[in-house]
Design a binder for these strands. Structure first.
Lengths: 227, 227
DNA sequence: GTGCCGTGTCACAGTTTCGTGACATAAGGG
DNA sequence: CCCTTATGTCACGAAACTGTGACACGGCAC
């Protein structure tokens, strides 16, 4: 399953910003972009990106200072990006707590490789998550988010969704789901599964009546398949 | 802050090797140098360096291959060093599992800064002190402070908090916590964990009723995640 | 169209789970 | 031994969750 990172990109030059945004999105990442440090810090507090890519030269608070402030809060990975390749800048940037320092112009695939290298380090102990479009399911944190927004699922709903997601593209029948999710090996028929599926749909489907994640297979059961 | 690392340097060009060895030693590191990958791999098995700096162009096994073999063994941090700055080389090197990729010639202080950046990341997971906002947990001194003020936690409370903090963002269920913190491998159900969590919350949460550190995940357990 | 079957939807009450405070018990220091 | 502190247990109320059944709806065969 294609690993995707929630990237926060901060770059004031519009052409560079949209260029990188496009390139990183094409690599499979989910990117949010801002042009100032203040906006970025606000965004970090609200949503929680997996990694921050910061241009050093920013209007207002500069990138190095943003990096220091991020470090004061937590361990969020930061890659600094700059047009200047001055040795002193590199040293100052890294000492501000950045995980890497990349000089522009940078090949998208190189930036991607560096992002993955940093994330590999950070995530070696971290949880496994899978994403389907803007739907992210974190099995370690038992958290489901959609477009960065957390979706609250009750225990049974979560177990059901996890079971469906474990077999993407496969049709799971009601008896199987009852046994695995509810531990009802005896109960033959009930509206239980349907009701739970409907509750999950109401929470994760943009239009519950036309589901894009959990599909009904009439006469058989349900199938999870991403859009 | 002056962390000193045991560095393994692998570089076949004698003048570059002695130059870097000298420079890094001067920065306060303890350096061991070899000129071939085989020697390096033997040394890694025998001693255990904190970080490996690997020239890519080596006689015999090349640096990227050495890096792959190191990765197959463990998480030992690796910085690749090369004369070529080809984009493809960078990508290949990082995908082999390297933590950073530096192009020669490199200023010693830049290399030093990159070494420290990689080590900082590696050690943050196992370091003695971690901070989450104004909450600082010192695992070495077994002390917890908030906004500079020391918070007194009882032994059990501290063990519980440390266990939660050891898996930030992960949901830990009650049975696991009972086993690890209390060594109750048999007890199935008890309000013990809940009561202890409540006590820790009363001490570290600004508003215990609306916890920002220790979150309840109904039906599953508790999760420590910084605000 | 008509009837049938499978599914979607909803509200509600019973049940489970959790937070909290009170209290008993245990441990440890003087 | 006594006092303090720490730990475990319990009970209760509040809140959250779940199962259930009734009914609506829609596809499908005839």
């Amino acid at each position: 399953m294609c690993r995707v990172a929630g990237i926060l990109l901060v770059e004031d030059d519009p052409s560079v910003r949209t260029g990188l945004e496009l390139a990183l999105t094409r690599q499979g990442h989910s990117v949010t972009a801002f042009s100032t440090g203040e906006e970025a810090l606000d965004h970090i507090r609200a949503r929680r990106p997996e990694i921050v890519i910061l241009d050093v030269m920013l209007p207002g608070i500069d990138g190095v200072e943003v990096c220091r402030r991020i470090r004061r809060l937590d361990q969020l990975p930061v890659i600094l990006l700059t047009a200047r390749g001055d040795d002193l800048d590199v040293v100052v940037g890294l000492e501000a707590g950045a995980d890497d320092y990349v000089v522009k112009p940078v090949e998208p695939r190189v930036l991607d490789a560096r992002i993955r290298a940093v994330l590999r380090r950070v995530e070696s102990a971290s949880s496994d998550r899978i994403s389907f479009g803007d739907l992210v399911i974190d099995r370690g944190a038992l958290k489901v988010t959609q477009a960065g927004r957390e979706i609250h699922l009750t225990p049974t709903e979560l177990r059901l969704l996890l079971e469906l997601v474990r077999h993407p593209g496969q049709v799971l029948n009601r008896r199987y789901l009852l046994r695995v999710v509810w531990d009802h090996s005896h109960v033959a028929d009930s509206r239980l599964v349907d009701a739970c599926v409907q509750r999950v749909r109401a929470k994760i489907e943009p239009v519950p009546a036309e589901p894009v994640f959990i599909h009904t297979v009439r006469g058989f059961g349900y199938r999870f398949s991403p859009p």
